[in-house]
Structures are given as C-alpha cells and as structure tokens.
Simulated assay, not measured.
Amino acid sequence: MAFFAVPSLHAAEPLCEYRNLEVDAKTGDIRFITPVKTGPEDCTDSSAAQVEIDPSWRQKLPSRVRWMQSADALTLCQTSQTPLGRRMLVLPQQGCVFLQMQQACTIVTTQALSHAQLTNAVRSCVP
C-alpha cells in the first residue's frame, strides 16, 4: 500500500475567518447573522463559515438557542439528562450541548469559545 502526499494549492495562505453569529451578553441567546469577514486580509475563501446557514436547517432548530459559561460545566456534562434537556454532544475539555425538544438548546462551556467552535456546537441543536 502506498500513500502519496498531495501539496495543497493554498498551503501558504491562511483560511479566512468569519463571524456568523452574535451572542446576547445578558441572555446568552444566539442569533445568526450574515457572515462578516474578520480576517486575515490575505486569505483563502474556502471556509464553510462564509456560507449562509440553510433556511430549512434553521427551521429545525428549537425556538431558543443559548450559550452559558459555567465553572462546573464539565461536571454537569457528565450527566446525560438534566433540567436543560438531553445531552446531545460533548465538547472535549470544554463543555457540552443539551437539547429540550422544540423548546431550547443550551451550549454549556467552562470558558469562551471561538465563533467557529460555537457555530459547530449549534449544529447539534438539530435532533
């Protein structure tokens, strides 16, 4: 069996970074926005974050998606069923995602996440 390394066409160029959601500082509610490029200037636009989230996918989200930071998130995330709902995803060393069907999806982490990490966590809010 042989493996061949294929050089990337954009190996020297960093991927563009986009912000595609906002978090309300008071409630933790997450709202999707039109992707806004955050940097760097010289980058390759092959990132999935630049694409609008499919409207049909958004309709499957519960009515409320929120993000909480908690010092005991990792302990809470050891439980598969809580008042926040059923645990859908564990974010290793960071937290997890709980889902109450059709009502709320709560992302719980010990510390701040990047927009990309938070956007990926929201994907598990769809059952």
Results as ranks from 00 to 15, higher is better:
residue 96 C to G: 07
residue 59 Q to V: 08
residue 77 C to E: 03
residue 36 V to F: 00
residue 21 L to Q: 13
residue 41 E to Q: 11
residue 99 L to S: 11
residue 50 Q to F: 00
residue 90 V to Y: 01
residue 45 D to P: 12
residue 88 M to S: 07
residue 122 V to D: 01
residue 60 K to A: 13
residue 57 W to A: 15
residue 80 S to N: 11
residue 94 Q to E: 10
residue 46 S to Y: 06
residue 81 Q to F: 11
residue 24 D to A: 07
residue 87 R to Q: 11
residue 48 A to C: 03
residue 113 L to T: 04
residue 101 M to L: 14
residue 5 A to M: 10
residue 110 T to V: 14
residue 2 A to S: 12
residue 93 Q to E: 06
residue 51 V to G: 01
residue 4 F to C: 12
residue 86 R to S: 15
residue 9 L to R: 11
residue 46 S to N: 10
residue 124 S to D: 08
residue 127 P to G: 14
residue 112 A to C: 01
residue 75 T to D: 09
residue 31 R to F: 03
residue 87 R to G: 03
residue 60 K to S: 06
residue 45 D to T: 14
residue 37 K to S: 07
residue 35 P to C: 10
residue 85 G to P: 06
residue 35 P to D: 07
residue 126 V to P: 01
residue 50 Q to N: 11
residue 76 L to H: 08
residue 97 V to P: 02
residue 13 E to M: 09
residue 9 L to S: 02
residue 13 E to Y: 13
residue 66 R to K: 15
residue 11 A to P: 00
residue 11 A to Y: 09
residue 80 S to H: 05
residue 116 A to E: 08
residue 118 L to E: 11
residue 102 Q to D: 10
residue 41 E to H: 04
residue 37 K to M: 04
residue 14 P to H: 12
residue 57 W to P: 02
residue 66 R to Q: 11
residue 98 F to T: 07
residue 7 P to S: 13
residue 25 A to K: 09
residue 50 Q to G: 14
residue 13 E to H: 12
residue 65 V to I: 15
residue 88 M to Y: 03
residue 54 D to T: 10
residue 115 H to S: 08
residue 111 Q to Y: 00
residue 99 L to H: 07
residue 69 Q to L: 11
residue 47 S to C: 05
residue 11 A to C: 13
residue 52 E to V: 03
residue 5 A to H: 12
residue 32 F to N: 01
residue 20 N to D: 08
residue 110 T to Q: 14
residue 31 R to P: 02
residue 105 C to Y: 06
residue 25 A to T: 06
residue 1 M to L: 12
residue 81 Q to H: 06
residue 101 M to A: 15
residue 27 T to R: 05
residue 73 A to S: 04
residue 61 L to K: 15
residue 92 P to H: 14
residue 36 V to Y: 00
residue 24 D to R: 10
residue 89 L to S: 07
residue 3 F to P: 00
residue 48 A to W: 14
residue 86 R to C: 00
residue 18 Y to M: 13
residue 112 A to T: 08
residue 94 Q to P: 04
